[in-house]
Design a protein around this nucleic acid. Structure first.
Lengths: 335, 335
DNA sequence: CTGTTAGCGCTTTCAA
DNA sequence: TTGAAAGCGCTAACAG
């Protein structure tokens, strides 16, 4: 079944069929009806390869960095659904933590000539030389990409700075002053940098003291990372009563490790997370954390990309999405 | 950059360039070298749309049902990586729980003319009329598809029956005889059916009594599903000391609900899960569960598909992958 | 409003 | 071993 067949069957020419299928004007109602009828009858579906070959630019590539990231997966699902309602087609490429997202994107860029690229997670702009070769609108979702010279790149992310500040405020309000931090490397992870910035804003605002060497533990964003980090933090930070952890998974890993060491959460140590993953609200103790809104991240991200695709002269945008502080059971009020 | 350009630049014709790029014979070493050199120099990448348009059949479609399923996501990641090492290209389509995977697959089938289709999760064969229209090898991963007339469909899954039997044996060995079950609808979920079959094998083998009405609670595969189910189970099944839950998420939901009701796991009630998701080993109590091997599911699944693609006359295969019983802390030895 | 046709970039015969 | 050329299914420009 090709449009040629449909043309023959309907008695019209391929041009007319194509016009109907693309909802273009300049087609009589009669023709439209007849052609649609035949197409439906034979369950006709356009060959996207041929279509894409002609009109380079009805295609959006989605790169997901870290499939095991539950947050990204919800966002992905929403985005795919919405793209389906536009004139664009899309497909998704899955990368693991160690892949170079810019390199992969570049390959796809040459291969498929997409109209736009969506990065879920990752930091493509870090690999400047590859990234800048792409002359296509890109949007980075969940990670922030401000301060980037490349005007192709928009970003939509949670306001990490504000959120981190608020949850730290919450710890302090509950009487904690000796707060340790579990996070990523603030020198090469934008996310960690922003969350640390927010944390420090709160610390300063409340005139507390913070010694990076003894109170901050750099580690991976994983259960094990959290487990390892808390062990070191406890041994080097005397009197610690609370931990600000930069992700839910690290917090969960830390809590488990504390349990294994005979230290109870929140009785002995309070802990907060970041992300608001569903499962954190089903464990004991329910985690006090920052909930990110997947729906908004997804919708705004896609909207920003489409905007950039359609308005050539549009500058890149950098949006911040609201968040919510989930009060769980992992923080104890002291004093 | 098209192969035409490469042809011009290298002094050869497009035909020769194409042959080189496809590693075909009948090309002189000189030509091969020269062309590869030029291609590399200009960072040439073939336009896959044009390629696919010609040779319908170097493309594998991957349908993922339920993105939030962590197990499927690991499997997906591995599969995509491996396809990259073959002559095939792939892309993934994400469906939610309520989408009809057979319908979606059929659309892709017409649109893209794939060489094969991989279903991660889902039960496409349930929608026979649509499913049977597809004359392409398909493989279903994580779900079992035996007893299916359609010889296009292979499946690779964990041996649910055996695994369920073994973990039930484990409960019984620990002194439990009053065991409730939290699972899906065994009438329309193959997975639930198999796991229940295994469970019953153990029950019978150990000459225990089981009353479906009071001891089985049907519910969704989700945290909330588990939470709701345990509540009902407890109220209708007097003397219950253990719960066989058909998924980790249901088990976690149930444990949280029990906590909220002041019932302790495993002190008052023992619970087992199924899937072996990473986070179940970082919570308290560590879940006793069945670990499925993503790596093997992925590799065998892809292998089965490629096999079916290459050997037209090959019958569909139905593989069972081993599993492992993870002994956590959610089961108490009684008696 | 409709039909005809060039050509997207590639692979693959066929002939040289 | 190589080149020339047909054509995959579609869109869009042009002619009518």
């Amino acid at each position: 079944m090709t449009i040629k067949d449909i043309a023959k069957l309907s008695g019209y020419a391929v041009g007319t069929v194509s016009r109907v299928l693309n909802n273009q004007p300049n087609v009589s109602e009669t023709a439209r009806k007849k052609i649609l009828e035949v197409a439906n009858q034979y369950n006709f579906v356009r060959n996207t390869n041929a279509q894409q070959l002609k009109q380079n630019g009805r295609y959006i590539a989605i790169l997901v960095k870290g499939v095991s990231n539950i947050l990204l997966n919800s966002v992905l699902e929403i985005i795919q659904k919405h793209i389906g309602e536009t004139i664009y087609t899309s497909s998704v490429f899955v990368l693991d933590e160690y892949d170079n997202e810019a390199k992969t994107a570049l390959k796809i860029y040459y291969e498929k000539k997409p109209a736009g690229i969506i990065f879920l997670g990752g930091n493509p702009q870090r690999y400047e030389s590859d990234f800048n070769k792409m002359k296509v609108p890109c949007v980075l979702i969940t990670n922030q990409a401000a301060n980037v010279s490349n005007t192709n790149l928009s970003s939509v992310s949670t306001d990490d700075v504000k959120a981190a500040e608020q949850i730290t405020d919450y710890l302090i309000k509950n009487g904690h002053t000796k707060i340790g931090v579990i996070g990523g490397n603030i020198d090469n992870s934008e996310i960690s940098e922003h969350r640390f910035e927010g944390f420090m804003n709160s610390i300063k605002k409340n005139s507390l003291h913070f010694d990076f060497n003894t109170q901050y533990q750099t580690t991976k964003y994983s259960f094990d990372g959290g487990a390892l980090a808390i062990k070191q933090l406890i041994s080097k930070f005397e009197g610690i009563t609370a931990v600000f952890s930069m992700s839910d998974v690290q917090a969960i890993g830390a809590i488990r490790m504390l349990n294994d060491m005979g230290i109870s959460v929140p009785k002995d140590i309070s802990i907060t997370g970041f992300d608001g993953l569903p499962f954190t609200q089903y464990i004991y103790p329910r985690l006090t954390t920052i909930k990110q809104f997947e729906m908004q991240l997804a919708k705004c991200g896609l909207a920003a990309l489409l905007e950039a695709i359609n308005n050539e002269d549009e500058k890149s945008a950098h949006l911040l999405i609201p968040y919510e502080l989930l009060e769980g059971e992992s923080v104890l009020k002291i004093n």
